[in-house]
Design a protein around this nucleic acid. Structure first.
Length: 375
RNA sequence: GGGGAGAUACCAAAGUGGCCAACUGGGGCAGACUGUAAAUCUGCUGUCGAAUGACUUCGUAGGUUCGAAUCCUGCUCUCCCCA
């Protein structure tokens, strides 16, 4: 499943090879988010050839509500349904426990949701979420967890973490007692919680590691806490999560967040930022962040990024993209999404090359300074 | 030629004596966005000021009034109907 290739001498950063039933990817890796069976605004063809994505996300909650498991099952799974033959990871709906907190209730049994689409009531249990993800057919599936909000008082964080751990035990058992629906292998990742409390994070990391799954995830971060606290939590969790298995930091983050987390030993990332912020006019580049809606780009006919591996970034101009985004044109959202994703994929690949070369630390320091600029 | 309606900020459009520097929408400018309830949301948008506030505005010139975008008179312009 995972093989570490190169280790950094002066940091926890490493490169590796992640093998799935739908291809192998080099780590560190960024996984574009395709919640509802689509990376918003980007065709599968472009995900492959412009963005160079080897693995993308789907979301159990969204796909379960629409189109529903029956349609996906009849299609032969999500890969065939959405015409994507590379790897897929599905989130369990744990994040929706957080983001739809107004419309859900938790019990020991599971999470009770009110659909954001039609208000209907649904229950997710650790077991049902495994069943749904078996039908979706993702290569990597996630255990149901509670993503705690920030701030979160200690008492709540303890109870929440214990709930996530109890749910994990049930998920692991149910996973072991069920079969993939389409013949290809699926693996289950558990999720570390514990909010911003060191003792809870350590306790949770130990529990999650003890589940013995082929990869481990860290959740409940980048939910509003200061970045320094997030890094601190990642650092101490990664000392406990096994070194020989991939570590997935869920939902993170900014380009700077990602480089810092790679430094701390994270291998996998996902985030809506490149696509959502792209649709809203924010472009990521190696020189810093661009708000393409700003007037100053109105007559800047230079390419979005001359050095990009993506033809989209090399050919479309800033002035044209500004015009499209400001006009609300769909093509603007597409170009910005492709550009940002290509940049994110380039960034993590470049980090990997510097880990191999042995100069990751210095490169990272320079790059973080550059990335944080607003231009 | 006769009759009628109307001129409000970048645009459109409310407001018909004080609660009006003036509703609302658009446009413009800026900000936010981290396992996607997001092609979304927020703020500003007469001038000066960080702000209390001060100053100048509702076609134009006068007038009435303690007080006018709002009432009266002249002028200019626009639109509609009839000939």
């Amino acid at each position: 499943m995972f093989e570490v290739r190169n280790r950094c001498k002066d940091s926890a950063a490493r490169t590796g090879i992640l093998t799935t039933a739908h291809g192998t990817v080099k780590t560190p890796v960024f996984m574009p988010v395709g919640t509802g069976g689509t990376v918003k605004g980007v065709m599968q063809r472009d995900l492959k050839h412009e963005v160079n994505a080897g693995i993308i996300l789907g979301n159990t909650y969204h796909l379960y509500l629409r189109p529903g498991t029956e349609i996906i099952m009849k299609a032969g799974g999500l890969h065939r349904f959405m015409n994507w033959d590379r790897a897929i990871l599905t989130d369990s709906g744990g994040y929706q426990v957080f983001s739809l907190s107004e419309n859900r209730k938790l019990s020991d049994m599971g999470a009770h949701f009110k659909s954001h689409i039609d208000g209907s009531l649904h229950t997710f249990t650790p077991e049902s979420v495994i069943d749904i993800q078996r039908i979706i057919g993702a290569d990597i599936i996630m255990a149901l967890d509670e993503c705690t909000p920030y701030p979160c008082d200690y008492e709540y964080a303890v109870r929440s973490m214990e709930l996530t751990h109890r749910w994990l035990t049930r998920a692991v058992n149910h996973f072991a007692n069920t079969e993939p629906a389409y013949g290809h292998e699926q693996v289950l990742f558990p999720i570390v919680q514990g909010s911003v409390y060191k003792d809870l994070r350590k306790q949770s990391a130990e529990y999650i590691a003890s589940a013995g799954m082929p990869g481990n995830a860290i959740g409940g971060l980048s939910v509003g806490e200061p970045a320094e606290i997030m890094y601190e939590m990642i650092g101490l969790v990664n000392e406990i999560l096994p070194e020989e298995k991939p570590r997935y930091l869920m939902g993170v983050g900014t380009p700077v967040n990602i480089l810092e987390a790679i430094d701390l030993g994270i291998d996998m990332f996902d985030c809506v930022m490149p696509t959502r912020n792209g649709r809203n006019g924010m472009l990521f580049t190696a020189e810093g962040v661009i708000n393409i809606k700003n007037r100053k780009w109105a007559d800047d006919y230079s390419p979005l990024d001359v050095n990009s591996s993506s033809e989209v970034s090399r050919t479309y101009s800033k002035a044209y993209l500004r015009h499209l985004i400001i006009s609300g044109e769909l093509l603007g959202a597409q170009i910005a999404s492709i550009h940002n994703l290509a940049f994110y994929l380039w960034l993590v690949a470049e980090a990997g090359r510097h880990i191999e070369k042995g100069d990751f630390k210095n490169w990272k320091t320079e790059m973080v300074r550059s990335l944080a600029r607003r231009i």
